[in-house]
Simulated assay, not measured.
Amino acid sequence: MMFIELDLQSETPIYTQIAEQLIEGIARGQLKPGEPLPSVRSLASDLGINLHTVNKAYQTLKQDGFLQVHRKQGVVVQPDTMPGVTAEFTAKLRQQFRALSAEAIVRGMTESEFLKLAQEVYRSNNLQQKGE
């Protein structure tokens, strides 16, 4: 779990930062399906934060289908199928793109610069792609 880095000055809540970085770890293959994650207490201790914050991140990811929580095994990366592209996800993504693209426009970024950056970020998270 060494790849989790928190920005305590960020406006993004800490539990959201943890959840986003765990999803990035799954996307990049750093976390494999079925792989156990540290306990809530252990991760909270390692990061120097409240255990309720870690619990909220884990519960959010469990609700979204990225993690499973077992009494004996603890928290594991979803061993079966990851959640698919749903209407809710598409709406969330559209809203985030709307806000990001509006700011990019106001700052003078061109559409091609915006799309190139989006493609670079997507590809950096998708290291397992083959020949794309």
Rank of each mutant, 00 (worst) to 15 (best):
V106T: 13
A91S: 13
Q21S: 14
N55V: 00
Q95W: 11
V77F: 03
T53C: 08
A91M: 08
T81V: 05
T90Y: 05
A27G: 08
L115K: 12
T16P: 00
D7G: 08
K116D: 12
Q9H: 10
S101I: 03
V75E: 01
L117S: 13
Q21P: 05
Q21G: 07
S42K: 12
Y58W: 12
T81K: 12
R28Y: 02
P79R: 05
T60L: 15
E120T: 15
Q21M: 15
K32W: 12
E132C: 06
V106P: 02
T110R: 14
A19G: 13
E20Y: 05
D64L: 10
D64K: 11
L8M: 15
Q96I: 07
K56G: 01
D7E: 13
T86S: 15
V75M: 00
Q95M: 12
L31I: 08
G34S: 10
R123I: 01
P13L: 11
P83G: 09
M109D: 09
Q128S: 13
P36N: 00
R98S: 08
Y122F: 14
M2Q: 06
A102G: 04
E113P: 02
F114W: 10
L47D: 08
E20R: 11
E103L: 02
D46P: 01
V54L: 03
K62C: 06
K32A: 08
F114E: 04
Q63L: 15
D46T: 03
I14C: 07
R28W: 00
I14M: 13
V40Y: 00
H70Q: 07
A104Q: 03
G25S: 04
P83F: 04
M1H: 12
E20A: 13
I49N: 04
E20G: 12
G108H: 10
R28F: 00
Q119D: 15
R94A: 11
K92D: 12
S39K: 07
R94H: 06
A27Y: 04
Q9M: 04
Y15L: 05
M109H: 11
S101W: 07
A57W: 02
V76L: 13
E11Q: 07
S10I: 09
T60N: 11
A118V: 14
R28H: 02
E88A: 15
G48C: 07
P33Y: 06
Q9E: 05
A99R: 14
K56C: 03
N50D: 15
T16R: 08
I105S: 03
K56D: 06
A118D: 02
D64A: 09
A99D: 12
F114Y: 15
Y15I: 01
P36S: 07
M109K: 13
G48T: 06
A87K: 12
R28A: 01
R107G: 09
H70E: 09
D80M: 07
F66L: 00
S45G: 09
Q63A: 15
A44W: 02
R94G: 03
G34T: 04
Q68M: 06
A99I: 13
Q17L: 02
F97N: 11
T16A: 10
S112F: 06
Q128G: 14
Q68V: 04
P13V: 10
K116Q: 12
E11I: 11
E35R: 03
F97V: 10
K32G: 00
